[in-house]
């Protein structure tokens, strides 16, 4: 078992289960901040699994979400992204401009924030799928710490704010209180930054933002500036973010969201002069482990040593589109026409849990993977939610699984780690961690 056959990986069952939401394992290493690399222009934050023992939010979860709930939320997230992509492509879903752009005669903030729902769809009550990883940032002067969802799939950073004029969901940490920060300021309606927002309004001269997700979740409030502390040695003065006074949706108990997309309001774009629009992340294999989120030139050094793939920017201003070209299973390139990947394109999204493939690509992957597993005699198991290729590994300590590699334009290759090939709901249900889109055009 110590020597897997060629093009196979050994999957340790012991390693798989700390990744489950029902884990009671302790944190491998407490989150810490540190400089790294040769360049001082790189700053590092710690990423932890939202439901793992390293998460500041973990203690708040009396009942961790089930695998079914996590996967259902992930399906909502994927559908939300499909919706945003498709509506942007057709023009139907272009960001709405608020009708409330009157200047000083605007109603009081409370009334504005309440009435703003007129331009928003009714909440379906479905989750955005807040992603499984969080980072902790400091906000204000003196800085208070907030645990926020880390999201490369959206732009505007926001936190729930005092006095929470309309409604806030329950969060683990105290609400951010602008009155306690000496560096807080609202962005004025006349400021160019206000126009950077996809959805904006005006109340009493103060810029209002709206962040609306495809599933009906949203945050509305004042667009503001304050000092954002990324680490103990690095802060961003005048960072523009949403001070949320009306926030609804299942955002877990996070204080808000850190937007890492490519739009004007995102953190990488706002800090372009400081970090050069460069950042990198690493997500830990186990929920008991820690990863990192780096900003700055040093974070790209390791990638430059390897092959990179072009970021395809013509498809829209927000998502990180890349060109997927193929899949290898057990070292063998699957026979999938290039058009299968090119038809709809591919994005990289830190907030989606399970990789979604065009139906034809998934079908080919599943067939090859299942054939390799059958050849080794592994017993199949019932599906788990959207995962349909599952195995019963009861009583096994290690399992040999075929390698899976995702190939991209320019020669970049993602040789998926064993922890990323399988999703373990239980020892008797360990599933191939990929799913198909409903339609080849999705």
């Amino acid at each position: 078992a110590r020597h897997p056959p060629p093009h196979h990986l050994m999957l340790s069952m012991e390693d798989m289960f700390p990744a489950g939401p029902s884990s009671s394992s302790s944190c491998d290493a407490p989150p810490r901040e540190h400089k790294h690399g040769a360049t001082s222009s790189t700053t590092r934050m710690t990423i932890v699994h939202r439901h793992g023992p390293c998460s500041p939010l973990a203690a708040a979860h009396r009942k961790p979400p089930s695998h079914g709930e996590i996967l259902a939320a992930d399906q909502n997230r994927a559908e939300s992204i499909q919706h945003r992509v498709s509506t942007t492509a057709t023009g139907r879903g272009k960001p709405k401009r608020s009708r409330r752009q009157q200047p000083s005669s605007a109603p009081a903030p409370a009334a504005s924030l309440s009435s703003s729902t007129a331009s928003l769809p009714a909440s379906s009550g479905r989750a955005l799928g807040t992603g499984n990883y969080v980072v902790t940032v400091g906000l204000g002067t003196p800085a208070s710490r907030y645990t926020v969802v880390f999201d490369t799939g959206s732009d505007t950073t926001w936190v729930q704010c005092q006095p929470c004029v309309v409604v806030c969901y329950e969060q683990r940490e105290k609400l951010f209180d602008p009155a306690r920060s000496s560096t807080y300021a609202n962005v004025s309606c006349a400021a160019p930054a206000c126009s950077d927002l996809n959805i904006h309004g005006c109340s009493g001269g103060h810029c209002l933002y709206g962040v609306q997700y495809g599933d009906g979740s949203y945050s509305i409030g004042f667009f503001a500036m304050d000092t954002l502390t990324l680490s103990s040695y690095d802060a961003v003065k005048g960072f523009r973010f949403g001070c949320g006074e009306r926030n609804e949706g299942l955002f877990g108990e996070a204080a808000g969201l850190l937007g890492l997309g490519r739009g004007k309001t995102s953190l990488p774009v706002q800090t372009y002069d400081k970090y050069g629009g460069v950042f990198a992340h690493c997500l830990p294999a186990r929920s008991t482990g820690t990863g990192y989120l780096d900003f700055g030139a040093g974070s790209l050094a390791a990638a430059r040593a390897r092959l990179t793939t072009p970021m395809l920017t013509e498809n829209g201003p927000t998502f990180y589109y890349v060109g997927m070209t193929g899949i290898r299973v057990g070292g063998q390139l699957l026979s999938i026409p290039q058009s299968v990947f090119a038809t709809a394109g591919t994005i990289v999204d830190s907030g989606t849990v399970i990789t979604r493939l065009p139906p034809a690509a998934y079908s080919s992957l599943r067939y090859a993977f299942a054939a390799a597993m059958a050849a080794r005699g592994y017993k199949k198991a019932p599906a788990v939610s959207l995962l349909d290729t599952c195995y019963d590994f009861t009583g096994m300590s290690q399992v040999a699984i075929p390698t899976v590699s995702l190939l991209f334009q320019g020669g970049a290759r993602l040789d998926v780690d064993a922890s990323g090939i399988m999703y373990a709901a239980s020892a008797s249900q360990v599933c191939l961690a990929f799913a198909a889109n409903e339609d080849g055009g999705d």
């Binding site: 992204i81 790209l300 990638a303 430059r304 990179t308 072009p310």
Partner: peptide, 30 residues
């Protein structure tokens, strides 16, 4: 649209350079 999700990105360094318009993957980063 296809989506590369976070499960498949585990342990990989994923680097984004908005100016140069590239995405890089490097294994064993954490």
């Amino acid at each position: 649209v296809g989506i590369v999700g976070n499960t498949q990105l585990k342990t990989f360094g994923v680097a984004y350079d908005i100016g140069k318009k590239v995405v890089g993957f490097y294994p064993g980063a954490c």
